[in-house]
């Protein structure tokens, strides 16, 4: 679901970035007023979790691949506003260091995965949970919320892809950016999510929700005990599992490089062929000179650590603000 650079027109990227700005502002404000410095590392762990889950790609019929996001789970565990900021940080690290998702299309990716997914997911989670107050109800709400959330995000991404050929064409009538119209992009992205990836997201959500509930219930209910070590253990396990993502050989829908798109269409759309291309430090989670699996583990460890460190350091700022508020 990571839209690469040059698949969306510059104007689309600008609109999506502008649409995301008030969401970021509102989330940052909410976090400043509601999250204490002790809770800040949780956002980092959440971001690291989402980063690792996104690395585990699942092969899809038709030769493409996809991944879960963990957005609804984060919204359930740390609240939708905090989830929005966590996933935004994750997407930024992915774009800057690993070339997963574009720099220009960062706003669009954030809109789909950091806004639509956690907020839709959380809305349905809350809606169901308020009506079914049993323990099973909580699980069902988390599963349903995550399934609906990721499908909403996929639909949103498909729409962004699909409007490109309608709006932007060269003088010869060829599409400039993403070549597929809505009639292709929506089924291509939504059907796999409805059938398979939604279930994968729901599985990750249910598994992590029950693990956290068992070992560190303080992360779900106020006052419960919190075992941060166990949660770090979960992250370490996910880092070691990340090479599973290599089993999915296909490229995700809408994330092809120039050569792939040429073999499919017979030409490279102008915007994609001549657009910007930034070289990431570890492109596609690989390290030159290392095997794919080793590169994946290194990338996973580095990315997750960076996110935990960023949010720990942000915790220092929150602490300073709290002191100012006391004065």
């Amino acid at each position: 679901m990571h839209i690469p650079d040059n698949y969306l027109s510059l104007s689309t990227c600008a609109v999506m970035g502008a649409a995301m700005a008030p969401v970021w502002a509102a989330s940052a404000k909410k976090i400043k007023s509601e999250i204490t410095k002790e809770e800040m590392p949780r956002l980092g762990i959440g971001a690291a979790f989402s980063f690792l889950v996104m690395m585990i790609n699942v092969p899809l019929p038709g030769g493409t691949s996809g991944h879960a996001v963990g957005g609804a789970l984060l919204a359930v565990l740390i609240g939708p506003y905090a989830a929005c900021i966590s996933i935004t940080a994750t997407l930024l690290i992915q774009a800057l260091f690993f070339g997963d998702g574009g720099i220009l299309s960062f706003g669009a990716n954030a809109f789909n995965m950091a806004f639509i997914l956690p907020f839709t997911g959380y809305f349905f989670y809350k809606f169901i949970k308020d009506r079914a107050k049993t323990e099973k109800g909580g699980y069902f709400a988390a599963i349903a919320g995550s399934y609906i959330g990721i499908n909403a995000a996929a639909l949103r991404a498909a729409t962004e892809f699909g409007v490109q050929p309608l709006l932007f064409r060269s003088a010869r009538g060829r599409p400039l950016y993403c070549p597929y119209p809505l009639s292709v992009s929506i089924p291509a992205m939504v059907i796999p999510h409805l059938l398979l990836l939604g279930a994968v997201e729901a599985f990750f959500t249910a598994a992590a929700y029950s693990y956290v509930k068992k070992v560190s219930p303080g992360m779900i209910y106020a006052g419960g005990k919190q075992k941060i070590k166990a949660v770090y253990g979960l992250l370490a396990a996910l880092i070691l599992l990340s090479p599973l993502g290599l089993l999915a050989a296909g490229t995700a829908w809408g994330e092809w490089d120039g050569a792939e798109i040429k073999s499919m269409l017979g030409y490279i759309p102008e915007g994609i062929g001549k657009g910007i291309s930034l070289k990431a430090m570890m492109p596609d989670y690989s390290v030159p000179g290392l095997s794919g699996a080793a590169g994946y583990i290194l990338s996973a460890a580095a990315g997750a650590s960076i996110l935990v460190i960023i949010f720990k350091l942000l915790g220092l700022i929150v602490k300073k603000n709290a002191v100012k508020a006391d004065d």
Partner: peptide, 27 residues
Amino acid sequence: TAFILAAGAYLLCVLSLMRAQEILSIL
């Protein structure tokens, strides 16, 4: 480059387990 990246990833992991104030002063 691969070894430098590996060492970097290792040090980041160790750093992420430390306290925020320590991380700040080290960085």
